[in-house]
Write a protein that binds this DNA or RNA. Structure first.
Lengths: 135, 135
DNA sequence: CAGGATCCTTACGGATACTG
DNA sequence: CAGTATCCGTAAGGATCCTG
């Protein structure tokens, strides 16, 4: 089974990270793990993202088959984004990232964290991924 | 317990990704999961990395407490890098990333993958993380 | 409402040359 | 051997203005 992918000669870890690089995609993923959302909702949910980056990230995630885009032929326009089944399958990955991140944050010096992640302004509510363990 | 980190107002997933962003760090992590390595060994193991990026990545990983650096006072110089316990704790994360990456690669169009990840030159042996499940 | 199109700045990262 | 220092091109990403 490992042979099937060996010809690609590429690190699967790096692939996964590549698909999620730029914090915006992670935050978009987090939003969409809560269910389908409209463009405007994502814009508000992913605090700090520019229109350009949101659009661009969503396009890339569509190209990567992680996100589905549904257009409702209405006026004014109504576009809904949701996770594909592939996108949904990222849940365990997000969970692993979150668990490790929580432990890291707890064990790190607050001042270091603040500098490392440019946290000057509080209130940006970088929420956590939704908890599905009880569902 | 969630309250302990709530004041940081930051997404743990994004934190974890941030620490691993740039493919080089992932590949360095992969190398060091195999055990301590010297600078030159890493340079060879992480195929394609420039000296600048290797040094820079290692410095950041040290600052993030992921990597330990040990200098042997010899001539010629002998420096050994290894994962800290914090770095070692990334193993489950790497595993999750790898498992998802393998599935993604298997289910993706080879041509798309080649374009998406700029795979023109084969033989760069982006190996996978070491298997510890049988240890 | 959901974007497209531009401009512009910065910082990432490669190549090269040098050092204790 | 294990780096440091410098130059430099590219491209990521923010800000702004416009549109179906």
């Amino acid at each position: 089974m490992a042979e099937d992918i060996s010809r690609f000669d590429i690190c699967p870890c790096a692939v996964t990270i590549s698909l999620l690089d730029s914090k915006w995609k992670i935050l978009i993923l987090r939003e969409l793990l809560q269910g389908p959302k409209r463009y405007g909702e994502l814009k508000k949910g992913v605090v700090g993202v520019s229109q350009k980056m949101l659009t661009q990230s969503l396009k890339e995630m569509q190209a990567d088959q992680l996100v589905d885009r549904k257009v409702y032929p209405e006026v004014p326009p109504h576009v809904e984004y949701s996770l594909s089944s592939l996108g949904q399958s990222l849940y365990p990955v997000a969970e692993a990232l979150e668990n490790w991140g929580i432990a890291f944050i707890k064990n790190s010096d607050p001042d270091y964290l603040a500098k490392r992640f440019n946290i000057h302004e509080p209130g940006k509510h970088w929420l956590r991924i939704p908890d599905r363990s009880k569902e």
